[in-house]
Design a protein around this nucleic acid. Structure first.
Lengths: 144, 144
DNA sequence: CTGAATATTTCAGGATGTCAAGTAACGGGG
DNA sequence: CCCCGTTACTTGACATCCTGAAATATTCAG
């Protein structure tokens, strides 16, 4: 019950944590907004984004979205009902179903990425050196 | 069908955008995790956090959470059922209900903030100057 | 071939979110 | 003072997201 666990956090760190919270909030706002412009929910947009390169097994989608596989079933169902995604058998393992973006799905995914202007517009105000510095700082944070 | 709309985004900006995406993902993970440790959902934790300073009208909660007021009703209902929040009349306007954290609610909110160690642990690897630089860069991003 | 493990789906149920309609209270103009 | 438009909150119906347990089909090791 000592104060060991929260050993006097310096105000600068607190401020940076707050700023990161603001960045997170704003990123989310803009992401949901961009998704809504394409009549997608956030979860649907995230899943569709994962399929933009190649078909992906349901299992892996669940891992990447950090949710249960049974949840992925529903999201893919809805995207499939709208013709943006299709299920294909995996030739190598008949248990597996691959979710693949249709041509229309890829088009929507592309439009989505383009309208995702967060951190593009804000970053425009930074010089190249500042962007480099920001990149390095973020890298080091994420490596920790 | 020209490339006008996406006028050649430089790789550095793309990388920084990606890094910010990773930060957002990680922040969310840890936030949900911290909330779950206190048997709260993310939405419940966010709302409780808004009440840690002072009672807040339902209306304002909806604005700050960026959702419909009818949604706030349900979240407060669940927190109230668990004794973490209570509804009080606003002496100045009988239409308004103020949501206020109970003593127990404040305790949980405090514990929540303390277990929110993201960006505390990662920031530990940065020097004071680096933290200052990061703060300034984030500020400028958010001001834009 | 048999049995344990894996991939997906289905179902029940809770939480979050929207929208439309209803109730209560405020507040200004006759 | 009363009416009426506005505001604050709640309710109900409905879609989505998410979990956990059970069912089905397939793989793979022994």
């Amino acid at each position: 019950m000592s104060t060991q666990k929260t050993p006097r956090i310096d105000p600068l760190t607190l401020e940076v944590v707050d700023l990161i919270g603001s960045v997170v909030a704003r990123y989310h706002e803009e992401y949901e907004e961009a998704a809504a412009e394409h009549a997608l929910t956030g979860a649907q947009a995230r899943l569709l984004g994962l399929l933009s390169m190649e078909p992906v097994p349901m299992r892996r989608l669940a891992q990447q979205l950090k949710c249960e596989p049974s949840n992925v079933t529903g999201i893919v169902d809805r995207l499939e009902a709208r013709g943006l995604v299709e299920r294909r058998p995996d030739p190598a393992d008949r248990r597996v179903k691959l979710a693949a973006a249709t041509a229309e799905g890829r088009k929507v995914a592309r439009g989505l990425r383009e309208s995702l202007n967060f951190a593009r517009e804000p970053l425009a105000g930074l010089s190249d050196e500042e962007r480099l510095a920001l990149r390095d700082l973020l890298r080091r944070m994420l490596d920790a």
